[in-house]
Simulated scan of single mutants.
Amino acid sequence: MKDDIVLSVVLYSYLDRPIFDVMLNGVGIGGANSYGTNGMITGIRVPFGKQRLTWRLGGPRGMVRNGETVAMKNSINLAVEEVPADARYLAVNIYPDDTAEFVFDESIPDPTPRGKIIDERRKHGK
């Protein structure tokens, strides 16, 4: 049985502020602007089992929680069976409620359905 998988990682943030020092199991995967992505980091070794994801909050001077390190509230326990055999990419999606979601694909994953809802609400000022 494999202990890990090597993937290219794309970060999607649905927060209304920048984030930085995003760490997946202790490995830096970048940062993102408000409602943004940071590009892609290749060759990230993702172990199977319980995942650890943290990020630091940025924003304008005086913004609440600036500089705070946040750990995802939900639990992601990655099993071999959950990763498609043709997966080459992992999208790490970070949401405003401090939860995260992983999406695997053979090409760069699209934003998640939940992410699309957040984007639509933002466009309409909700």
Rank of each mutant, 00 (worst) to 15 (best):
D21V: 00
V92Q: 00
S75P: 00
I76E: 03
F102V: 05
V70P: 01
I108A: 09
Q51C: 03
V92H: 05
N25D: 15
G62P: 10
T42G: 14
Y35D: 07
L78M: 01
K50I: 10
P109F: 13
M63P: 04
G26L: 14
R114L: 08
R56N: 02
P113H: 01
S34K: 10
F102A: 04
R56L: 00
V22T: 10
M23N: 14
F20P: 00
Y95I: 07
Y95N: 08
V103P: 06
P47S: 06
E106F: 15
P113A: 07
N38H: 05
V46H: 11
I29H: 07
R65Q: 09
M72P: 03
F104I: 06
T54D: 02
G31T: 02
N74T: 04
P96W: 10
R56Q: 11
N66D: 15
A100L: 02
G36K: 05
V64E: 08
N93K: 06
A91Q: 04
S75I: 08
N66E: 11
G36N: 12
R61V: 15
K73S: 10
S75W: 01
A91P: 05
N33I: 07
G31L: 13
G62V: 14
F104E: 04
A91R: 12
E106L: 14
V22E: 05
L57W: 01
K73V: 04
N66Q: 09
L78I: 00
W55P: 00
V64T: 15
N77A: 04
M63D: 07
N33F: 14
G59P: 06
G39R: 06
V92N: 04
V83N: 02
R88K: 10
N74G: 06
V83T: 03
Y89V: 12
I108R: 12
M23W: 03
V27M: 10
A100N: 02
E81F: 09
V83G: 01
G58Q: 01
A91G: 13
W55C: 00
N93A: 14
P47R: 03
S107K: 14
I76D: 00
P113K: 01
S107H: 15
M72Y: 01
L24C: 15
M63R: 11
E106S: 14
K116A: 00
K73G: 04
V46A: 10
L24Q: 07
T42W: 14
K50M: 13
R45W: 03
I94F: 05
G115V: 01
S107C: 09
D97Y: 13
R45F: 02
G62M: 15
V22N: 01
G26W: 07
I29M: 08
R88M: 12
G58T: 08
I94V: 09
I94S: 05
A91D: 07
F102H: 07
P84V: 02
R114K: 13
T112R: 12
G49C: 06
W55L: 00
I41K: 11
F104M: 06
T42P: 14
F102K: 03
D105K: 07
A85P: 15
S34Y: 04
I118L: 10
G26S: 14
F102G: 04
N74H: 11
G115Y: 02
G31S: 04
G30I: 11
A32G: 09
I19E: 01
I76N: 05
D119S: 10
